[in-house]
Computed example of a mutant assay.
Amino acid sequence: MTSPAKPVGPGAGATLATQGTRILLVVVFSFPLLFMFVSSFKPDAQIFADLTSVRAILPIGDISLDNYRGVFDRVPAGRMLLNSVGISLLTVVLGILVNSMAAFSLSRMRWRGQKVVLMGIIATLIVPFETFALPLVWWVDKLPWLQLDGFRLVMTEGWLDSYHVQIIPFLANAFSIFLFYQYFQSIPKELDEAARMDGASWFGIYRMVVMPLSGPAIATVAILTFLPAWNQYLWPLMVVQTEDYRPVMVGIQYFFQLNVSWGQIMAYASMITVPVLALFLAFQRAFIGSIASAGVKG
């Protein structure tokens, strides 16, 4: 005998609808990336000819690497990529250290004015960068810096046209401090007391107890720090004059001078998008876990 078919309840229909909606959203949001990547292998004439058909997202027709070769002929793409990688990685590593230590002090230690400082840090989130960009340029132009001259260090004035002017002003970040603060609050403080009983210092508690338990928060801050560091455009335009220190985003303006090549623009955009996608794919599980836990515990 054949067993009767199980009726499909309303829950199964809702699940199918949810999965269908997710697939549709993936297609919609991935379409621009797919179009950009496919167009990077096509000449300009074919890009415009394929716009009105599905061929726009298919790697068919006159496919070649000419656009990628043209990118390196038109801009110092290799140097700019190395600059952005170095600037972004240093900003992430140092930013995690600075912001997590500030959050540790605010969440685990007790000192006078703690809440006032925390409220002041959170209040800075409402101030857009454009409002203090010009005063910041004036300040960094006056700050001293040690520079190697031959075999001796000399004190110079001004940070303009350098790597550190693109890193140091963005290490402390209010949102990163608040995210670490929220996550540290969810870690039982009894662990601190046990470590203190064993003779651990506050820095020892931070290094050996709190940070090893904060992997999701670290991954989230790493992504949220890397993205603006990688996408910086306005600030490098204001403080960097020579190509030796320029990041990749500034290179976009090179393609709109004289003859505009949309194929080369797509190739360059594909090159500078890959590191961001790779970073997110590498840390997506920890990133989603941190956001989910913040929503439950916050």
Rank of each mutant, 00 (worst) to 15 (best):
M1T: 11
A5S: 13
P7N: 08
P10G: 10
G11A: 10
A14R: 13
A14W: 05
I23H: 11
V28E: 09
S30W: 14
L33T: 15
F35D: 05
M36F: 13
A49Q: 14
A56V: 09
P59R: 07
I63F: 01
Y68I: 09
R69H: 13
G78V: 03
L89A: 14
L90K: 07
V92I: 14
A123T: 07
T124W: 00
V127Q: 01
P135F: 03
L143A: 05
L146Q: 08
D149C: 05
G150R: 10
F151N: 14
R152H: 13
R152G: 11
L153H: 14
G158K: 02
G158I: 01
L160D: 15
Y163N: 05
P169G: 06
L171Q: 07
Y183G: 12
P188S: 13
E193R: 06
A194M: 11
M197L: 15
Y206A: 08
M208A: 09
P228D: 09
A229F: 04
L237S: 06
V239M: 04
Q241E: 14
D244F: 00
M249T: 14
F256L: 04
Q257F: 09
A267F: 10
A269G: 07
S270F: 05
M271I: 11
T273E: 04
V274Q: 07
P275I: 00
L277G: 12
A294W: 01
